[in-house]
């Protein structure tokens, strides 16, 4: 309880309350998150339950259209799946993949950054050169390529089962250099500090110094970059799924929904694409705005 009270009293919480943009973004994000987390209980239909689908319900427009039906607020797709429920379940998948791949990128980036910054020398030069090379390529290209290679390397029967893991790996790998560079930079600074010297004098092992002494002091910027990367990771997943190398229609993420809906754009059924698209934009925009706010709030120079 006191921890919550202390947080509510902190500078960060104060700047949060004072920023209308951050409040708005948090509200939008909270609504989307609530819809996604509570989907199994509050969604009007279960799009993954094939037995409940009825082809008679296919291609129904949203409820405000003359042909709309009350039970399908945002209309249905070609299989008779409710769009709103599809989005709620889709956001779950998009978020899980987005968060997991950012965590993957953070862990990999921290490991490389700490090692490069602390060890220095040849190891540092090689690791950072690799990061530089990767940074010259856009993340989406790396993710697409890794995805293609891993899929090709896996045996056919494992594709469907491991698709989520492959996506997380591909997207995570495309974002690690940013984290590695930041952590390396801060590690270089921290390495020269007295407390690290002291820890070394006591005779602690390098691994222990890196993990328990330096790591907590270099995490700050990692969280800010992590928030901003989350938006990009969700977009990457949506883009890959839209390109047809992401999740299959059997477990549709928001990107997959947009891809499915895109096929029906010309027959005038715009709602199949536009609503998932709008959700994606709101989700990413609110995460980005919160990330921007967090960056400014944690920056002592701007206080």
């Amino acid at each position: 309880m006191s921890a919550i009270a202390r947080w509510l009293d902190s500078d960060v919480a104060y700047s949060f309350r004072r920023s209308p943009v951050a409040l708005m973004a948090a509200l939008v994000l909270a609504i989307i998150l609530a819809g996604a987390v509570l989907a199994p209980w509050i969604a009007p239909h279960n799009p993954l339950d094939l037995a409940s689908l009825n082809l008679m319900d296919s291609r129904i427009p949203p409820v405000w259209d003359a042909e709309g039906q009350r039970s399908f607020p945002l209309g249905t797709d070609d299989q008779g799946r409710d769009i709103l429920s599809g989005i709620m379940y889709g956001v779950r998948i998009s978020l899980v993949i987005g968060v997991a791949s950012v965590i993957f990128a953070i862990v990999a980036g921290i490991a490389v950054g700490l090692l490069a910054g602390y060890a220095g020398g040849v190891l540092d030069a090689v690791l950072m050169r690799v990061a530089d090379i990767q940074l010259t390529f856009p993340a989406i290209l790396i993710a697409l390529l890794v995805d293609g290679v891993v899929t090709a390397a896996l045996p056919q029967e494992m594709h469907e089962r491991l698709k989520t893991q492959v996506l997380i790996f591909s997207i995570g790998i495309s974002f690690w250099p940013q984290f590695a560079r930041t952590v390396r930079g801060s590690t270089l600074v921290e390495r020269g500090r007295e407390y690290v010297m002291a820890a070394r004098v006591i005779g602690l092992s390098s691994g222990r110094i890196m993990l328990t002494h330096i790591l907590p002091n270099v995490l700050g910027p990692v969280f800010v970059i992590g928030t901003l990367t989350l938006g990009l990771a969700i977009l990457s997943e949506a883009t890959l799924s839209f390109l047809g190398v992401g999740l299959p229609p059997s477990s549709p993420s928001v990107g997959t929904l947009i891809r499915i809906g895109n096929d029906f754009l010309f027959s005038g059924e715009w709602w199949m694409t536009i609503f998932p698209g709008l959700t994606l934009v709101l989700l990413v925009l609110s995460i980005n705005l919160l990330g921007d706010w967090l960056r400014d709030a944690l920056n002592p120079k701007l206080r």
Partner: peptide, 25 residues
């Protein structure tokens, strides 16, 4: 900046090719 590329494309197609029918998609 916030709109993903593929969504911009889809929106443009919807407006200019499907609704207005002035440009090929």
């Amino acid at each position: 900046v916030s709109l993903p590329t593929f969504l911009i494309g889809i929106l443009l197609i919807l407006v200019f090719s499907v609704w207005l029918q002035v440009l090929p998609s």
